[in-house]
Computed example of a mutant assay.
Amino acid sequence: MTTPNELRLLPWSGPDGKPCYLSTDDSGGYVSRLADNIEAVQLGMAADLVEQVSAVLGDRDADSEDLRCMLAELTGALRDVLRVASSRGHILAVCDPHSTALLR
């Protein structure tokens, strides 16, 4: 069992939108690998979305509905990326105590 400082924030929410955490010493376990894969997919989707948004912003014929849709997708992607960054920042802080300055 790990200490509370070593909990990993998972890239999905639980019931009621509350964060989920993983407590394990095994970074190669099934749930850890699943979380790594989901984070990779989320980051890849965010990168693809940046390209799509650039295309829509460059389209003078894009209407407010197109822009509203892009904003909704960007909001979701940003939420996912922030969760990954928060989780990875926590992992870095646990692994390297000198990296906590990055989290302030």
Results as ranks from 00 to 15, higher is better:
G29Y: 09
R33M: 14
V50T: 00
A55W: 06
L74N: 05
L71T: 05
H90D: 13
M1S: 15
V81G: 02
A46N: 11
A93W: 05
L34A: 14
R88T: 06
L22M: 03
L9C: 04
Q42M: 13
R60C: 02
Q42H: 15
S64G: 09
L9T: 00
L34E: 11
D59A: 10
G44S: 11
C20M: 15
A55D: 13
I38P: 06
L57F: 03
C20R: 15
T2C: 14
L34M: 09
S32N: 12
D36T: 12
E65G: 10
G76S: 00
G89S: 01
N5T: 04
D16I: 11
L92D: 02
I38F: 08
T2G: 01
D80S: 09
R79H: 04
A77L: 02
R88V: 02
K18G: 07
A93E: 10
L74Y: 00
C20V: 06
S87W: 03
L103V: 07
E73Y: 08
R83C: 09
D26C: 06
V94H: 01
A40L: 01
L57T: 06
S54D: 13
R33E: 14
N5D: 07
R33W: 07
P11K: 04
R60W: 11
S64M: 05
Q52K: 14
L92R: 15
